[in-house]
Design a protein around this nucleic acid. Sequence first.
DNA 1: AACCTGAACAACCGCACCTCC
DNA 2: CGGAGGTGCGGTTGTTCAGGT
Length: 304
Amino acid sequence: MGRAPCCDKATVKKGPWSPEEDAMLKNYIEEHGTGGNWIALPHKIGLKRCGKSCRLRWLNYLRPNIKHGDFTPEEDSIICSLYISIGSRWSIIAAQLPGRTDNDVKNYWNTKLKKRLLGRRKDRDTHHHRPSAAVANETSGENMNDGGERALSASAMERIQLCMQLQELQNPLSAAIHNPLGWPTCRGTTQSSNNSFNSNNSNVTVAEQGQSSSMNEHLNAQLDSAAMDGIASPSSVENSNVINMEAELQELLYGEGNQGSVDGGVQQEGVEWWSYEQARPVNCWDFTPEPNSVFQDYASVYEI
DNA sequence: AACCTGAACAACCGCACCTCC
DNA sequence: CGGAGGTGCGGTTGTTCAGGT
C-alpha cells in the first residue's frame, strides 16, 4: 500500500521557482521562522508548493551565506578525501565547507571532481601499466558476483576505484599482492573497509546514528581507522605516506607540476590538503576552524 | 544560422530515520 | 509498542546554456 504522499501532487506546483515565490518564502522564514513544520509552511505562506520543495529551496538557495560556484583547491581536496573516507555523505562533507550545500557539493563532485580524478587517472594509466580502474572493474558489480555477491552501489564502486588508484600509487606491488580482489584495505585495519563500503548500508547508518556508547565506540573506531587510512588524520608513523598520497591526489586534481594555487589562496607546493599547522580561513557560518578537526567535526555531527 | 552535445545546476523522488501520540 | 507523520538525505532527472560542428 505504501505511505500517503506528503502533498497533493495534483495541486502542487513543480519546476523552477519564480522570484516572487522565492521572495515570499524568504520573507516569511526570516520573519517567522519555519515553525518546525515544513509541510504546513507553504499553506501558511500561500504557496502552491510542496513542503519538501520549500525546505530544499530554502536550504540550497535562499538561506543566508550560501556560496555558489568557484570551489577552491582546498575545498576540492576536502571533498575528495572525505568522499574516499566516508563516501557519499554529502551533508557531512558539505558541513566541512562553509556556505556550501550538500546539493552543491554533490553536483560539483558528479560533474567535475569525479571526472577530473578518474579521467586523469585513466589518462595516466593508458601510458603506464595495467589500469587500476580495470582491476577495480574486474572486481566490481558484474564480475565479482557469481550470483552470490550483490552488486555494489555506483558510489561504492567509485570509491573502490579511487582508493585503488591512490593505494596503487602508494605501493603498486603490495596493492596487487596483498589485495588481489582490489579491496581497498589501504593501511590499517579491515575496519576501514567497513567504513568505506558500508556507508550505504544499514549497519553503518545505525552505527553512525546510534546514541549508545557501544555505537559511539564503533564510530570512533571507524573514525580512527579512517584516520589510519592516512586520509584524514595521519599518525607520525604514516606521515610520509600521507604526504605522498596528498601530493598524489593533488596531482590527480590539478595535474603534474600544478600544485594547486588556482585561486592564489593557501595552496602551494604540497598543497594544503589537511591544514595541520595553518589555521584554515574561516569566512562564515558554522565552520569549525580547528585544524585537523574534520573528523572531530564529523563526530560532532553525530553528537559523539 | 541551425543543430547537436555535453556541462552545470536546480529540483524532484523515494527511502530511511526520528519523533510523537 | 506500534503506527503515522515529518524530516533529512542521497540518487536521479529535468532544464538551461555555452561551445562546437
